[in-house]
Design a protein around this nucleic acid. Structure first.
Lengths: 379, 379
DNA sequence: CTGAAAGCGCTAACAC
DNA sequence: GTGTTAGCGCTTTCAG
């Protein structure tokens, strides 16, 4: 049989037989060699099943014909294994690389995948467009869902797929393996710290509570019905602690921001301080927002913590460097745990739950509020 | 036909016919409905090809039977599209999330993928184990290769695959689309800046030059034969500029570090300063290494830039914050460009090359060297 | 608008 | 060691 050696536009040598001008397949290779497809398959997948000599011949002919080895998709179809884990995020794919906490999570997840020899497929599930197709297209053996709202249509599609799924942080799904922390308790510890310092007049900044944008104050109803369980729990933790300390929670301003970046933290703090210049502390449900709040404080000439206490959540690197009072949560370990749960072959009956520990980090951004007198006459 | 509704351990409803206890497929759904497979397929992929009423029936029966929609792998096999882009990195998967430059690159690449509706598959190609299988398993429509040495076996496997490939930074491959910067010219600009300031006695710290570990001085031969083209070019740029300024390049200590982190930058600087305490500048081929060098300088009581000039490369966030003298390169844009090249459907004849601009950033870590007198008697 | 026919490229029993 | 058989689950012309 005659062959052409074609150099395609990508620089690949593509050998094609004259009769059928198509790339080589396992079958055509077998035909060329005069052996069965099994044998060729074995040459790639089970080297011990044929003589070294024959194997060499197969591989060499493959090279000559430009056969690139078994097609991964066809193999996946046959073996029912894709060799990859899918990741579903709330946000734009690229956001995951802008948010330090998400990056750490990914780092942990990537470690677990690598250990298991699995690829990690980032599924392009843009929350703006309800384009669920990408989830259906994903050739994966399982999904990790990271921090999405309970009513996300992409989530629904993931749950329909007949593959194991692990949820991290959100939402809370009884029937699935999950990884998370005790958000409520962690936030309560922040609140108690501030209460002990003497703060009673506070403001709160939180991340988005639902898929609809609300860059404004949050009503009690919205707080309770938030589709993001993590934010809901953190607010609940604050409400509980401050309520117990005699603070009327309904009177506490809670400002929400849809986009999670420093600029939004700053604008939220501005909104809070404009509304009530008397607040002595701004509690944020993330470090990024807290960083923004500190920026705004500086802009207004308020010293932190003398004039204003600011707290965050997560303990990302920059927050740590700045000595932010915050809650450390093991984000990378979350990713690792999620990946482990997913790739762990051990059969399990009921859904597993991993709850990781957190730690209150008391930094240099929280202090006792100054008395009114001090505010007017200096420390 | 009778059906069982089974709730499997992941909480998925799995409907199975009594005769064949297997998950529903498009074929079984068609049989159940008494229509052809085409019709069911159309219900999912070409809604305009059937009556809304029939479509509704199909979809509803699907739900009842627990049919999760067309299997993505089978579809991929048939359509010859995986809907994903593969990414090959030199390092452990998780490293990509630890290195700020790599994170930015990923951010850009993710943006491009999202725009094209493609997934992004991180291929677990651990450089330690020469396990090329993961590359062969990857169900992708194309690859992006990011900064790998020219003799990497994973790279070889990628190039064998009959899919388009774009190379970013390294290696230089004539036949493939590529994205990069002019590393040599960029580094020359750093050198000229230092030469102008009056530095003649310098030390250099670079990243790994080959796949074999060498945490030590680099010979001239090793410099010229480095398998990492980027490092090679940067060193060549320095050699050229300093050579032109009358500095004997062979006498300049160049220290290499295999692992790319701050601690290694520090230890390399220590090695350099131990070897020749008279050097007035430490030039690093990355910001991370430079950050380490600054740490070491501080440890020794050397003030930067009064006692020692330190320069980096990349302009990552932390370097910018510290006012490091460095080269800004548009890392995110590299990722974006690589993704665009790959997903751009426009047919092209010859390989395309995108060279992005760089900019010398003169910060607060470079200054004229002090004279010997000043060194002894103060400024 | 619907169906029949024809694979996509491969692997895994199981027999020889 | 090697070959035969039988699909994996789907899409896509092309007739009707």
């Amino acid at each position: 049989m005659l062959h052409l050696l074609v150099l395609d536009r990508y620089g690949h040598f593509m050998a094609r037989s004259m009769n059928a001008r198509r790339p080589a397949t396992l079958a055509s290779l077998a035909a060329e060699l005069g052996v069965s497809r099994t044998t060729v398959s074995n040459a790639y997948n089970r080297p011990d099943q044929l003589s070294p000599e024959l194997r060499r011949r197969v591989l060499e002919t493959a090279r000559r014909l430009g056969y690139p080895g078994p097609d991964p998709v066809a193999r996946s179809l046959r073996t029912r294994k894709a060799g990859a884990v899918g990741l579903l995020l709330t946000e734009n794919l690229s956001y995951a690389f802008r948010d330090p906490a998400a990056v750490s999570f990914l780092e942990g997840l990537a470690m677990a995948c690598e250990l298991a020899g699995q690829g990690l497929l980032l599924v392009p599930a843009n929350p703006e467009r309800e384009d669920v197709a990408a989830v259906h297209r994903a050739g994966v053996d399982g999904f990790v869902v990271y921090s999405v709202p309970d009513d996300d249509p992409h989530l629904a599609s993931v749950l329909e797929r007949p593959v194991p799924t692990v949820v991290c942080d959100q939402p809370e799904l009884e029937l699935f393996d999950s990884v998370g922390i005790d958000d409520r308790a962690a936030m309560t510890s922040v609140a108690e710290h501030l209460i002990q310092l003497g703060h009673r007049r506070i403001g709160v900044i939180c991340m988005r509570l639902s898929r609809d944008r609300n860059d404004d104050l949050v009503s009690q109803v919205r707080q309770r019905e938030a589709h993001f369980h993590v934010q809901r729990s953190r607010l609940a933790g604050l409400a509980q602690a401050f309520g117990a300390a005699g603070v009327d929670w309904e009177g506490v301003s809670v400002v929400e921001r849809f986009d999670h970046d420093i600029a939004n933290g700053a604008s939220a703090a501005a909104q809070l301080l404009d509304r009530d210049p008397q607040i002595t502390a701004v509690i944020c449900t993330s470090d990024i927002l807290a960083l923004g709040a500190m920026e705004e404080a500086t802009r207004r000439g308020l010293r932190v913590p003398q004039d204003l206490t600011v707290t965050g959540f997560d303990c990302v690197a920059e927050a740590e460097r700045l000595g932010l009072t915050t809650v450390r949560q093991p984000v990378r370990e979350k990713g690792l745990a999620a990946g482990r749960l997913l790739t762990d072959p051990s059969d399990h009956g009921r859904p597993r739950r991993v709850t990781l520990p957190t730690e209150l980090i008391i930094g240099r951004t929280s202090a006792a509020p100054r008395t009114t007198e001090e505010r007017w006459f200096g420390p």
